[in-house]
Simulated assay, not measured.
Amino acid sequence: MSTGGFDFGPRPHPRRMSLTPMIDVVFLLLIFFMLSSRFGMDAVLPIAGGAEGAGSEWQGAPRLIDIAPDTVSLNGVATDIDALAVELAPLMPSADAAVILRPRDGADLQRLVDVMDQLRGDGLQNMILVE
């Protein structure tokens, strides 16, 4: 067959596809799923909402703990977190009486959990979380 005087020569072999982009995508997906996976157990925080105490009558002195980013106050008086249970003891009518926790502006969740852990470690189990 005549090509009009042009000789194109031997037909070149098709170029092999590079696997590098596909490997990059696989590694990116692997990293994404590793970072977005959740390992370990989730912690469960047994707390009562603010509406739970609405059906019962409050007994005893007020027990309001304000949790700020750098301070903890019991009924408006700044208190050391380690001495919180000692300060609460005279205000508690019974061992299972409720304590109200109120996070203030700027207090993060970890700060709230630290205060709850401290109270739970001191034997206080009935906590009500309010806004």
Results as ranks from 00 to 15, higher is better:
residue 2 S to W: 12
residue 55 G to P: 03
residue 122 D to M: 02
residue 108 D to I: 03
residue 3 T to Q: 13
residue 87 E to C: 09
residue 52 E to P: 02
residue 99 V to I: 15
residue 42 D to F: 12
residue 42 D to Y: 06
residue 117 D to Y: 11
residue 71 T to C: 08
residue 29 L to M: 10
residue 43 A to V: 13
residue 11 R to W: 08
residue 69 P to L: 06
residue 45 L to R: 07
residue 68 A to V: 08
residue 24 D to Q: 06
residue 71 T to Y: 14
residue 89 A to T: 01
residue 20 T to H: 11
residue 49 G to C: 03
residue 18 S to M: 13
residue 35 L to R: 07
residue 23 I to C: 13
residue 109 L to H: 06
residue 107 A to E: 08
residue 79 T to Q: 08
residue 70 D to V: 11
residue 74 L to P: 02
residue 129 L to F: 13
residue 83 A to M: 14
residue 93 P to Q: 04
residue 24 D to R: 11
residue 80 D to P: 12
residue 106 G to H: 01
residue 114 D to T: 09
residue 58 W to Q: 06
residue 55 G to R: 11
residue 25 V to R: 06
residue 15 R to K: 14
residue 78 A to I: 12
residue 120 R to E: 09
residue 104 R to H: 05
residue 20 T to P: 05
residue 20 T to M: 14
residue 83 A to V: 10
residue 98 A to F: 10
residue 86 V to Q: 07
residue 121 G to V: 01
residue 6 F to I: 15
residue 76 G to L: 03
residue 84 L to P: 04
residue 75 N to I: 11
residue 57 E to S: 05
residue 12 P to H: 10
residue 76 G to I: 02
residue 47 I to F: 14
residue 25 V to G: 08
residue 123 G to I: 02
residue 117 D to P: 11
residue 24 D to V: 14
residue 110 Q to V: 11
residue 131 E to M: 02
residue 12 P to A: 12
residue 83 A to P: 06
residue 64 L to R: 10
residue 123 G to N: 08
residue 126 N to K: 10
residue 38 R to T: 12
residue 53 G to L: 10
residue 115 V to K: 12
residue 104 R to S: 05
residue 3 T to C: 09
residue 10 P to T: 05
residue 85 A to G: 13
residue 5 G to N: 08
residue 67 I to G: 07
residue 25 V to K: 08
residue 67 I to V: 15
residue 18 S to I: 10
residue 126 N to D: 08
residue 101 L to Y: 03
residue 37 S to Q: 08
residue 52 E to D: 09
residue 45 L to V: 05
residue 116 M to D: 04
residue 54 A to G: 11
residue 120 R to T: 09
residue 93 P to W: 00
residue 90 P to H: 01
residue 10 P to N: 04
residue 131 E to K: 03
residue 86 V to K: 04
residue 93 P to F: 04
residue 16 R to G: 15
residue 41 M to V: 13
residue 20 T to S: 15
residue 33 F to D: 12
residue 104 R to K: 11
residue 91 L to N: 00
residue 52 E to R: 03
residue 9 G to D: 08
residue 111 R to L: 00
residue 78 A to C: 04
residue 34 M to G: 10
residue 17 M to L: 15
residue 14 P to Y: 05
residue 66 D to N: 13
residue 104 R to M: 10
residue 108 D to M: 04
residue 98 A to E: 11
residue 8 F to R: 08
residue 46 P to D: 00
residue 34 M to L: 10
residue 117 D to F: 10
residue 79 T to F: 06
residue 107 A to M: 09
residue 105 D to F: 02
residue 83 A to I: 07
residue 81 I to G: 12
